[in-house]
Amino acid sequence: MNLLPDVRVHRPATLEEAVRLKAASEGARFLAGGTDLLVNLRRGLGEPTALIDLTAVADLGAIRREGEALWVGAGVTLADLARHPDVPPALAEAALAVAGPTHRAAATLGGNLCQDTRCVFYNQSQWWRESNSFCLKKEGDKCQVVAKSDRCYATYHGDIAPALMVLDAEALLVGPDGARRVKVAELYRETGASHLTLAEGEVLAVVVLPPLPGWRAAYRKVRIRDAIDFPLAGVAGALKRNGDVIGGFRMAITGTNSAPLAVDAAELIGRPWDADAAAVLAQLLRKKASVLRTTIVGPAYRRRVIQGMARKLVDELWA
């Protein structure tokens, strides 16, 4: 028999009930597909008093057109997201790049966006972490990656967030004080121990995708085991070609920092995509990606591969 914290599991049928339950139970956590949270709880990473299971909330599971925009419920599974005809190809591609088919059948869009940050010193069993005097993210007072740091450097490894960022998507958050809409990038802050900006009691309900006529977008990642792993580094790009020059350009990276980050490449606009532009992009990526020793693969490879992947990806979008 496997031990999980002794929790009460609530299964609300509506979003209002879910938000009310969360406000009423201190120390409760939202649960969706469970492929991230339950695995972590089994390793002693978290002691929630209750779990509020969102998989029974019917209205979180819809994909629908709302005027020009596409509204995707946070409870849509990654498998459904990948095969829905209205979902932009770059988003479907990112969804298909997450873990294996069995995970994608259970894991949800909202759960993927709100997944915990990861670190080779954190995603370990209780006894492993204890023998290593724990770490800043959980129970310890020292970061094992950057010894003198007062912040945690655990890395965000979600695949979907960067794709949504280059697609200019927004997230609809519902909390006890009502709903608000933020850009997907604003869901995160670069601190490994508390990387989500959602307020206490807020739940991610819907992702809103605007129409992007004339743009092409894609997502690429590298991983140890191609069939299933988190990205060692991932990059999403969107490009709008204006004749012989770049008319619009957006890029976002994951697997490198404590949050998925947009790469501001405004200086590429108005110039052609050539070797000089590629060198500029490589320089911007070098500055943005602060890859550290948070995975079993060393940082040097991850730093280099993100530049190579980004270049190839823009080559494809430009062609």
Partner: peptide, 15 residues
């Protein structure tokens, strides 16, 4: 009919 990992699913979610 969908494949699912029983090690990372709660029994009560199978209601």
């Amino acid at each position: 009919d969908q494949p699912r990992l029983a090690c990372s699913t709660l029994a009560v979610q199978m209601q």
